[in-house]
Design a protein around this nucleic acid. Sequence first.
DNA 1: TTCTTCTATGTAACCGTTGACAAAATCGCT
DNA 2: AGCGATTTTGTCAACGGTTACATAGAAGAA
Lengths: 341, 341
Amino acid sequence: MKVTIADVAKRAQVSKTTVSRILNGNYAHASEETIRKVLQAVEELNYSPNALAKGLKSMRTHVIGLVLSNLKNPFWTTVLEGLEDTCRDLGYHLMICNSNEDPDMEEKYLKDLRDRQVDGIILHPTCKNPKLYERLAEQRYPFVFINRRMPDIRVSSVVVDNIKGGFIAVNHLIRYGRRKVAICMYRNEFVSTWKDRLEGYKKAMLANGMTEDDFIMIELEQHADNQQEAIMRQLKKRPEIDAIFSTNNMITLEVIGAARELGLSMPEQLALVSYDETVWAKYLDPPVTTIRQPGYKMGQTAVQTLVDRILSGGDEEPTVVMLEPELIVRASCGAMSFHIS
Amino acid sequence: MKVTIADVAKRAQVSKTTVSRILNGNYAHASEETIRKVLQAVEELNYSPNALAKGLKSMRTHVIGLVLSNLKNPFWTTVLEGLEDTCRDLGYHLMICNSNEDPDMEEKYLKDLRDRQVDGIILHPTCKNPKLYERLAEQRYPFVFINRRMPDIRVSSVVVDNIKGGFIAVNHLIRYGRRKVAICMYRNEFVSTWKDRLEGYKKAMLANGMTEDDFIMIELEQHADNQQEAIMRQLKKRPEIDAIFSTNNMITLEVIGAARELGLSMPEQLALVSYDETVWAKYLDPPVTTIRQPGYKMGQTAVQTLVDRILSGGDEEPTVVMLEPELIVRASCGAMSFHIS
DNA sequence: TTCTTCTATGTAACCGTTGACAAAATCGCT
DNA sequence: AGCGATTTTGTCAACGGTTACATAGAAGAA
């Protein structure tokens, strides 16, 4: 049933080598006649080469492994698109794994992917396996971090400037008159994105003449399911809060729910800027001002970076690409109805 | 650098065969001593087998190919999770491709995946390559359709009952007093999901004493970007419309935008039921009544079906699994504020 | 003791490619 | 015609596993 290169060779009356050479192009010394015969045989038998055998021999599979940690967040859908498109353009395929923020899963998948001889790995690290990442980096295994960075580990990364994103968001709120700005985020000591957004928040506060005493943190447990209530409790405890910087799109929904429940008008009593632009942000009530992250670009760049590394043999210095976040102004931040009094 | 089974064999002072047998478990006749030596060598050398070589010989890669057509829609994120989790549980990996509704891409990817010797394919068909699907089916290549069905082609499929979904949605609207119910959908003759939802709409209308003359169709071009305007035009032309059955979550957002723009109050002047439950539906204004599709379950079932087929050699009859949609009532349909007058 | 039957392990072919090297065919030139 | 250079094609050993078959040794039966 399965037709191999040997079948083609026989039918075209040439050797396997000749077929292989002609099919792989890089073969100057072939007569017109032979090429014709081979191509015809390929056509007639509907031959196409076994990528496994090819990979085994050539040590290149043209597969890139991808380890993500939360497919749920629609941000990643955009990233995935960028990854996918770019892989296609560069002739790679994508093997996708979901670590679910579990370091053990992450380790297992990393091993699995290498056993499968993928040419390189794009990793959204849980950040809980530092020695593992270090080992991979030492072995010069081609891989890149995406979205999160680990400054101590010498690995190429493609991330968004979250400090800047946090700064822009909070600075914007303050500029439009808010002083009691709270940051609403998950409790998480590991991950650079959270730390950076928080740092951006602090920077913006300090840059606008506030002190550490003015910082207001609403911390949530990432996997709890009473988020909205937790937010309501905090808002009731600190009724002076007049703005919230919400650090991801799920939290934003909970904040809106909480405000609605408490009868706080938005943006009048409570202004809001949210991380992560989404298709639905502008249809919420009120339409939400967001920080857009270039997800597609991030995917694109990650693949490019990885493929560069694969092709170069992985000798060069790790690179860090930092993409720019962007503020998208809508009604929730209060800027649109702002009047200098 | 790379350690092979031969290295292990040498270090343990046994043959490659013995190592292979011990590592693959199915080997009753091995002395304690040999097992110990081999395991120790494996440990010391940190050996792990090359999946490519394994696959080449065994004709099994434990990889499932996945061809989707629109990663953008968050519904697929849920499906992907189901696919991913189930693959992990059953010992498979997922190679993901995005056809983008383009039949040529679809064909290319299908070929690529087979060249890569994936054990089977899960396909969200563009439905524009019927002869191709037929050929695959004839060759008994293990694959299953997901989400969309093609009744004429003998292929296992895992879908949601879209006729029922459409029926439930529209029946619900009518039950709460609406009579001029429009269906808002993409113009698309190919795809079962759209045809079925439309059929469900018609069934519900007829079942409630209406005739074909009462059908109101608002058709949109899938890739146009003035959707909201198109909807507004239709709504102005047919001011009697008092309810909309929106057939996917993107359309729903556009409908809400259109209604807001026209100053139509929801649900009073315009009621809405939407296909596809989303995380944000309940935070919209008004919170949207939706038809939830069991996406995770769909992914799960697709993998199970495919793996069954792979393991059985693909001889049995194709199966069709039809999952049940579910109505989630919120404010937009008007049911919550409904009073019998 | 000798023959049979297990048990425990090894030998070598094979999966479908590629590529280093060898060889045959063609050509130009004397 | 004879030679080397060049073009064109073929041979065969990898790549890293698995597995059918072979074999050696030990135990059991006659």
